[in-house]
Write a protein that binds this DNA or RNA. Sequence first.
RNA 1: CAGAGUAAUCGGAUAAUCGCGCAGAAAUGUGAGGAAAGUCCGUGCAUUCAAGGACAGGUCGCCGGAGAAACUCCGGACGGUGUGAAUCGGUGGAUAGUGCCACAGAAAUGUAUACUGCCGAUGGAUUUAAAUCACAGGCGAUGGUGCAACGGUGAGUUAAGAGCUUCACCAGUGAUAACGAGAGUUAUCAGCUAGGUAAACCCCGAUCGAAUGCAAGAUUAAAUUGAAGGUUACAAAGGCUGUCCGCCCACUUCUAAAAAAUCGCUAGAGUUUGUGAGUAAUCACAUUCCCAGACAGAUGAUUAUCUAAAACAGAACACGGCUUACGGGUUGCUCUGCAUU
RNA 2: GCCUUUGUGGCGCAGGGGUAGCGCACUCCCUUGGUAAGGGAGAGGCCACGAGUUCAAAUCUCGUCAAAGGCA
Length: 119
Amino acid sequence: MLSKKYRLKKRSAFTATYRVKKSFYLEGVAVFVGFRKENTEEPTKIGFVVSKKTHKRAVKRNRLKRLMRENYRLFLKNNETGNANLYKSLIFVGHERALKLNFNRIKEVMRLLLEKIDD
RNA sequence: CAGAGUAAUCGGAUAAUCGCGCAGAAAUGUGAGGAAAGUCCGUGCAUUCAAGGACAGGUCGCCGGAGAAACUCCGGACGGUGUGAAUCGGUGGAUAGUGCCACAGAAAUGUAUACUGCCGAUGGAUUUAAAUCACAGGCGAUGGUGCAACGGUGAGUUAAGAGCUUCACCAGUGAUAACGAGAGUUAUCAGCUAGGUAAACCCCGAUCGAAUGCAAGAUUAAAUUGAAGGUUACAAAGGCUGUCCGCCCACUUCUAAAAAAUCGCUAGAGUUUGUGAGUAAUCACAUUCCCAGACAGAUGAUUAUCUAAAACAGAACACGGCUUACGGGUUGCUCUGCAUU
RNA sequence: GCCUUUGUGGCGCAGGGGUAGCGCACUCCCUUGGUAAGGGAGAGGCCACGAGUUCAAAUCUCGUCAAAGGCA
């Protein structure tokens, strides 16, 4: 779990991020990016979503969200967040394919995604 | 020893590093389940409408007990299944009435017999009589049916036959007696015996305010105002929580944002242990403990060891049940088979 | 979290106790120089799954699973 200042919390913030309509996809993990930042001092806010349609069981959905969250936390700690700092908000969305991946594979996928979102 | 039945129980552990929710000034403390699941029953709690009547309607259905209640639990009765331990059962009424019973069949509910048949004892006709006729009449045995044919099987009786009540063995029903708290069981007697379906409508008995569900609902401050207000005589249309009586809406003034925070929110039909009552469910008393409370939503990640990268699976107001999912074990009691003593 | 509805040929739908049907699509034949349209014939169903009631269940009852929708 991330501490509160890195979390995307408000419903309006989520809808605002989705309205930018810019997303990237790799191996069952999608990233929606929000507006570009003016002040780089502010922390980037992250949301994690796994829909109920992806899988019925809450345990498996929670597992995927936790894995993604944990990876992002480790990125923050090691200063490997890539281009995430350019945006105000990011939303990671887990899909059906990602349920089968293990911790290290998701780590790779997310690192590649964070490099991709520059352009 | 093998195979079963049943009741319970555990629901990964330890260490290291990095992290999260809640409480707290801090130190620190604490942090998912036996099913948290399905949402199938029942409650508490909250709001709205009624607190009235009528008509509808729902639910339940062997007996006794427990329980706040329940499509709940415990003990028993009866019936089904099993060699057995056991286990399963929505188990009132078909003589209150109505409906349905395809195809087949003579006939499917009406104290049936038109048809196919059996008989012709008795009466009648022919006739001396025997015999013949199948006329009156008697009979319900026979009928390639069907889930089901009006108690069943076998004998006796008879002209032919028949529960005929004559007999044997059964099935049901009623009465009486005994036992039992009761469902019921057993015995004796009575010829009393007119299908099935009520998980078809229904009848009987018992019982139920209705609806909506914490996204219920309550509070707070600000903006131009109030999380709206006022009016209502009739008619039409529409709506409302079953329908009617009834109520809302209409007409007018006015306008915000599918916004935010706080409360509801967890001390309870509670947990642990013990004693007593009871066959048991459960209850009483004492003792002990405080044990998640989020709001894009907390328990995670990595590594190592343990036989082994454990199954089903994640609280969202709470509780009592039911149902379903589940890796690998452990324990008690019981049954059957085989072997030995 | 709560509430509601629906599961029947490949697709869309009927049937509400007594032999499972309709339209489109599919296969073959006819028609045409050929295709479409048209005509004729045919195949394809454990009626979502598991129990129960009944002589008999797609239909009645109970449970399970799946899909869809609604509530701020």
